[in-house]
Each structure stands twice: as structure tokens, then as C-alpha cells.
Nucleic acid binder design. Structure first.
Lengths: 188, 188
DNA sequence: CCCGCCCGACCGTCCAGACGGTCTTGCCAA
DNA sequence: TTGGCAAGACCGTCTGGACGGTCGGGCGGG
């Protein structure tokens, strides 16, 4: 039974991965149940066995994305020294530190966010809640609220610009932006 | 003949307005030719007379949006005093100064951006070009590049968070964020 | 034997786009 | 001035295809 559960989990995850791949490679409009099933190496009926509707698929996609986001962000928080501006510094690092698996993380987040929002804006409510959580943390960060939220906005901008493929800073520019924002992440 | 041209223009604009309304009120998924035509008070055939395909409609939507964006931004630039940090200050004002018709502008931009990107990510290429133009201007703004791009990222974040309905600062917080960013918009 | 996972054919719906038609408008020749 | 002609604006219908979701069945492990 445990084995079965693991197998099921794997198939579910494979389907979610496949959905993200479809969106990343062919755009939101191409995300159909058939395309997802094909990309996951599963029949359409098989997909619908795991996710009873497209909405259920997108909901799961968003939930996984939020969990990943929360875990990643919290890791950055605990990597920062305690004291005023800790969360602000974590935001900066989260948005601007490139790590091997973070590229794919960004693609995941973008795919989930865009496809869910396109189908029904209400589906990204968990993302809004997570953003509110971070906002609350950053508001009690021991910084002047203007500075703290400016840092958050910048982190949002870096990430969301990537979501739309608008822009992404190269390595050296990222370091310079980081330095500039670090100035805001201290009680100026 | 002139009269005819003006009439045509009006209908085209009405259709574009209608498309934005549909997206704003019912989401990207509800943006069909039929729904747009109905919202514009025009038959489907009439709509297709003005826009030969859905893609043509979305292209026009994006073009109008970019023109509006460019005009609005340039107005903010010329409202700022010359000298280092002018474009950075314009970015801040553009993102954080609420004006009566700017709410609707944001809705327009969001609708055009989301619907075009959902249909085909390549359609928002004009937006990418406009963003690149602003980026170029801000890079030659007489500020350290890190500071300039940090301001740009913050402005992007404020706007794009609004696009997804993630967050929007209230009046007093907006003033505080503005003050914090203004610190970056001067040669620190 | 049976249960859960998975298959794939099938159905109803919706939509993009094509098409043929109608009506208004401007233009020109008589 | 007027009759008629050509063009453009707009309409209503149709169709082919894609998509979400259903259903009955097969298959393998327990």
C-alpha cells in the first residue's frame, strides 16, 4: 500500500511537471488535458483519474507552487542573520540569487501562476495569501515601512518581470541591484 | 469619406474597449470573439470585419496599450526636473501616483498584457521593447546602475502585483515607499 | 477474486473563422 | 439634380475542430 501510494504520488507529480512543461514550452493556451496527459506519458483518462477536472489540476499546481515558494523563502530567511531587515534581506536574496535549481523553480512558478490565473483569477488565491504572509513578516521587520515595502516591491518586480519574459538582470547587474537594495534593508 | 473613417475608428476603439472590459470583468478565459462582439454591441461578423482574427485583435490591444504606456511614462519624465535620476523619479511617480484615469489605465494594461500573453507569449513583444526602451533610458540616467535598476524593479513590482491582484499599497504606504525609493533615485 | 490504476473511445459544447448577404455612403455621369 | 454604381461597414449562419469531461473496460497486484 505504501508502495502504491508512492507510485500514485509519482504519477501525480509527473502530471504536474508535465503541465508546467507544456506551459513553459508552448504557452498557457496550449495547456489542455490532452497535451498534459501526452507530456506526462499518461492517457487522458489516466490524468482525470488523478485530477477530476482541469480546475483540480490547476489548483494542485498552485498549491505545489506555493509550498515550494514558501519553503524556498523560509530557507532564505533562516540563512540571514537575525535582527532588523532580516526578511528584507531574504527577499533580496530570493529574487536575485541564482542557483542551479532556481531557474526551474521560476519556470514552475510562472507556469502555475499564469495558467491558473488565465483559467480563473480566483485560483491564485493561495498565492495572494502567501504574498500577504510575506508582507506581514516584512512589515514587522524592524525597518521603516516604506523601505521594507520598497524592497518587497523590487523583489516582486524582478520575479514577475521574469514571469512575462520582460527582463532579467545579468549576473553583475544583479549584484549591483542587490547592493543598492541592501542599503534599503538597513535602518537608513 | 473622412466621416466614414472616423466612424470606423470609433467602432474599432469600442471593440478594443469591450475586449478589455470582458477580461477585466470575467477573466482571460472568457475573452472570445463572441463575448467581445456582444460587449461592443456588434455582431461577430462585424467584429471580424475590423479584426481579421483573434490574434489581430490582441495585437491591436497590445499596440494601443503600449502607446498609452509610452505616452503616460513620457509625460511623467517631462514633469520631472532634468538632471541625474530623472527617469528613476519618473518610474516612481508612474507606479505610485494614483490619478483618476490611472486606475482604468492599469486595468487596460493588465487586460491587454494578460490576454495577449495567454494567447501567445510572442504577442507581448511590443511590451518587451517598450520595457527595454525605459531600461535603456534609466541606465543612462546618471545614477549608479544598481540603484537605477532597483528603482525600475520596484516600479515593475508595484505594477505587476496589481496586474495579478496580489497587492496594492494604500495611499500612506505609497507615500512612504516613494520616499524610500527617492533615496535610491539620487546619487547616494 | 477483487480493487484500484489506468486506458481510449466517445459525447456535448464552445469557439474561431468563412461566407454570403444587406444596407448605407460617396461618387459620377447624364 | 438625380439615378445608379461601386465600395465599405456590418450582419447572421454555418462548419470544422478542439477541448473538457464521461464511461465501460482491461490489467496487474494483493
Amino acid at each position: 500500500m505504501l508502495h502504491q501510494t508512492i507510485e500514485t504520488r509519482d504519477t501525480r507529480e509527473r502530471i504536474l511537471d508535465a503541465a508546467e512543461s507544456v506551459v513553459a514550452e508552448r504557452g498557457v493556451a496550449a495547456l489542455s488535458l490532452e497535451a498534459t496527459a501526452a507530456a506526462a506519458g499518461v492517457s487522458k483518462g489516466g490524468l482525470l483519474h488523478h485530477f477530476r477536472s482541469k480546475e483540480a489540476l490547476l489548483t494542485a499546481l498552485v498549491e505545489r507552487m506555493v509550498a515550494e515558494m514558501r519553503a524556498g523563502y523560509d530557507a532564505f530567511v533562516s540563512a540571514e542573520a537575525e535582527g532588523p531587515g532580516r526578511h528584507a534581506r531574504a527577499c533580496i536574496a530570493w529574487a536575485l540569487r541564482p542557483s542551479p535549481q532556481q531557474r526551474s523553480r521560476d519556470l514552475r512558478l510562472a507556469a502555475a501562476l499564469l495558467s491558473a490565473h488565465a483559467h480563473d483569477p480566483g485560483l491564485i488565491e493561495p498565492v495572494r495569501r502567501e504574498h500577504a504572509r510575506i508582507r506581514a513578516a516584512i512589515a514587522n521587520d524592524g525597518l521603516p515601512p516604506g523601505q521594507a515595502h520598497a524592497v518587497l516591491a523590487a523583489a516582486d518586480g524582478i520575479f514577475l518581470a521574469k514571469v512575462f519574459g520582460l527582463w532579467s538582470p545579468d549576473e553583475t547587474l544583479a549584484r549591483e541591484i542587490e547592493a543598492a537594495l541592501a542599503c534599503l534593508a538597513r535602518p537608513c
